[in-house]
């Protein structure tokens, strides 16, 4: 779901990571605070499109190819959110809320698309340093956040393996038959990763 770094030299790529994080954070907050109205849904969508257009992603389609990829990547989240809210809240809030949530995720994705994880790690480490006095280890916290981001593709791979194994055994795959092996594999991965991080002299 979280897409990886896209090499490039657009506006966002050249922006120093600190201000970039703050800018994107402000945008995410902005869309999150929109009211539950039709015009707000349009505004959220428009903000996304504009953000991708001015980011200078260099995908040969004014950022719209990447924008499309991100929308496609969160189709399940979008679907679940809108169905749940349609039932309980009615069409206008459902569409507006879903648009806000999706817009927030899609705008946040710009950070990962235009910043190397190593840079992100360095920046987070520096940004979290003031929290040292509340006994938070900035190195550990930054590493934890980074590893969380980079583990997403691994978990996606595990999920695919579990589904394939079930299909191979002729099972249609209910939630339980998926969740148990997936959790076991995910926990095993977490365990191994913890060891590997320790062995690599960090963590």
């Amino acid at each position: 779901m979280l897409s990886l770094y896209l090499p490039g030299d657009g506006v966002l790529h050249r922006m120093p990571p600190g201000p970039k994080i703050l800018t994107l954070l402000a945008l995410v907050l902005g869309v999150s605070l929109l009211p539950a109205a039709w015009w707000a849904a349009c505004a959220a969508a428009a903000m996304c499109v504009i953000a991708y257009a001015v980011a200078g992603l260099g995908d040969g389609a004014v950022g719209m190819r990447q924008f499309g990829r991100q929308v496609f990547a969160i189709r399940w989240i979008a679907g679940l959110t809108i169905v749940g809210q349609l039932i309980f809240l009615g069409p206008e809030p459902a569409v507006a809320n879903t648009a806000r949530v999706c817009a927030a995720i899609i705008i946040a994705a710009l950070l990962v698309l235009t910043t190397r994880v190593t840079t992100l790690l360095d920046t987070l480490e520096r940004a979290l340093r003031p929290l040292e006095f509340v006994r938070l280890d900035p190195q550990r916290a930054a590493l934890l956040l980074t590893v969380t981001i980079t583990t997403v593709p691994v978990l996606a791979g595990l999920a695919r393996q579990v589904r394939e194994a079930q299909r191979a055994r002729g099972s249609s795959g209910g939630l339980r038959t998926f969740a148990v092996p997936f959790l076991v594999m995910a926990l095993k991965h977490a365990d191994e990763l913890g060891d590997a991080l320790a062995a690599r002299g960090v963590g």
């Binding site: 190397r116 994880v117 590893v147 980079t150 593709p153 691994v154 990763l193 062995a199």
Partner: peptide, 8 residues
């Protein structure tokens, strides 16, 4: 897979 941490 368990030893690789960074995306590239």
């Amino acid at each position: 897979d368990a030893q690789i941490v960074m995306p590239t």
